[in-house]
Design a protein around this nucleic acid. Structure first.
Lengths: 345, 345
DNA sequence: TCAGCTTATGGTAGCGCTAACATCATGTCA
DNA sequence: TGACATGATGTTAGCGCTACCATAAGCTGA
């Protein structure tokens, strides 16, 4: 069972390979009669064009790479859906890579896809160290768009959700409910999102005349275990906080794990607010959060990339999408009038 | 900025392209001295091998495709992690495709990757109609391994989790807790997992002398909305069931949505059991479920595939992995002694 | 009638790489 | 010493496809 090539089709249709190629690629300048004969031959032989060979000639594989730091985080899978949907519409196949928040895996991935000659790369960085990763595609002249997290020293397109203002609002919401010892469990400093969210946190405190206490700001990797560990440390303090702002959904779960273990009820004993909504939950939505439009973010990122692939050489662009606040129960909003409960969450 | 090719490296190292190729591919028969000179030249020029060109010659791209029906289902993302981890170890890059439970998208994907000349395909079928999808890689001689769900008429390798026995045990657990009107919200008949789980459901009923009532078996797509719709119908009945077996996690969420909307408490008014654990939850694990070893399933599937890629031509193999029961609160196990609560969930 | 255009089709070369064989310099043993 | 292995390197051809130019045939208008 030898593979069917364009030459086989050409022989059967009694035309040159060139003509078959024209039919395959939908070029004009082929008479209807010939086109039909060729199409017939393709079907008869079960011809499947070889995109690798084509890619070698036209230097365009029709594949885009998307690298995200955590496949199990619903935020990133939503992003991936957005990217994939629009990429497929534009005729591209997407390679999805998972760096597991590890700079080495990320670099290995980017090297692999660069050597595969993908046409473009969307990277949600795993944190510091992405500079080395990015060198691979950039050296090849492969366009790169950053997603969600910025990378120091990279001057290119970037799509992200608004973090600072949303963080400030979340924390202000807590303050308005009477909390004045508010801790933050932030992500790794390498993640620009963590830095932005810390910025909003401190802005809210400052704006309301609350002193920033460094002991109440703790950082961990964006994982449930990390949130758990830092929250335990916070809750062990004599002057423990009455509210915690977790910088992402996984951290929030960890915080709640710790609270439960300490016998603290959320929100009565500890209020919790966070980033990124998680729709998959066995119960009514519970966490008050700032919900980034993940799917739209993915679409925005690939929009930027497709423009580059169309030959756009304008200066780097940044797309920032608005983040929506979802006030629910974990922040203790039960103190609000009941009418309010009906309209939100 | 022209792309650096093997010829450029060869010129700089004053050797033939062939020798560079040997160095790149780690072949023997290159003197240490030459090897060092070539490596030096590669670094100096920033050479990145072109896998597309290589793929054209050796007819092996080093890419595997994984197609799953739902990227937002944690079960499948866990599977994907398993596949990816082991594939990367073996030097392959994985293309992840999401068919969204849609046979057409699935077929489009398989056609795309077949034409990309991927080396192998792992498919978690979207249901009936996957025969057409599979024709693409098979015609090309690309090995295929099925995952989780079987496809009628496909006679090849298959990796899946045990469904029948686990389903029977789940339902028997309900029966032993005194339930005798137990409904099932199953998946689409096209999914072999749905058929297997129905089998287990009926076996449990029969084994305990309970009549199978067709009105209590309803089917929906594997979505939250589907589970919600069918559960509403079930709960509207005069003789509404006291327990529901949902065939997967999304269906279970839908069932619980419906229960909540009807003012029914789980498990007090309605017991719920399901398949596939969801670790991401804002609360203590709640759903009693049969937990398939998703990551191990992914690894098993790719193990089968790698064997084929190594030239294994033995008859098709099926790998079935055991499924673990996790008894938690949603089934009403609070009726059990408290000591039990401490050891499980 | 023919220059000058358009349209359909074919021929040639080459994308970047490697399989397969060829070549050449050494080393080994009787 | 020569027959013969062994190892390092080069040469040639070709993977399947398409860019580019060539060719041939049909058509227009003066």
């Amino acid at each position: 069972m030898r593979r069917v090539t364009i030459a086989d089709v050409a022989r059967r249709a009694r035309v040159s390979p060139m003509t078959v190629s024209r039919v395959v690629n939908g070029s004009d300048h082929v008479s209807d009669q010939t086109r039909r004969r060729v199409e017939r031959a393709m079907v008869d032989l079960g011809y499947i064009p070889n995109r690798v060979a084509r890619g070698l000639v036209v230097n365009k594989l029709g594949v885009l790479a998307l690298v995200i730091p955590d496949l199990s985080n619903p935020f990133f899978t939503k992003v991936a859906r957005g990217v994939e949907a629009r990429a497929n519409l534009a005729g591209y196949t997407v390679i999805l890579g998972n760096s597991d928040e590890d700079a080495h895996r990320e670099e290995a991935y980017l090297r692999a896809v660069s050597s595969l000659q993908v046409d473009g790369v969307i990277l949600a960085s795993s944190g510091r160290g992405s500079g080395a990763s990015l060198a691979w595609p950039l050296r090849r002249g492969i366009p790169v768009v950053l997603l969600d997290r910025e990378v120091d020293g990279f001057d290119g397109d970037f799509a992200h959700g608004e973090s600072r203002r949303a963080s400030r609002l979340l924390v202000e919401h807590l303050i308005e409910h009477g909390h004045h010892r508010i801790a933050m469990v932030s992500g790794p400093l390498g993640a620009s999102t963590a830095r932005d969210r810390e910025h909003g946190y401190r802005a809210a405190l400052g704006h309301h005349g609350l002193r920033f206490d460094p002991a109440l700001l703790r950082r961990a990797p964006y994982t449930r275990a990390g949130g758990y560990r830092e929250a335990l440390a916070l809750l062990a303090r004599e002057d423990r906080p009455s509210a915690v702002f977790a910088a992402n959904n996984f951290l929030a779960f960890g915080v709640m794990d710790a609270a439960r273990e300490q016998g603290l009820r959320v929100p009565q004993d500890l209020a919790v607010v966070t980033f990124d909504d998680v729709e998959i939950a066995a119960d009514e939505p519970f966490l008050t959060c700032a919900d980034q439009p993940a799917e739209a973010l993915g679409q925005a990122a690939i929009g930027l990339l497709l423009d580059r692939l169309d030959g756009d050489h304008s200066p780097p662009r940044t797309v920032m999408l608005e983040t929506e606040l979802r006030i629910r129960r974990s922040c203790g909003r039960h103190e609000e009038p009941l009418a309010d409960r009906a309209t939100v969450g």
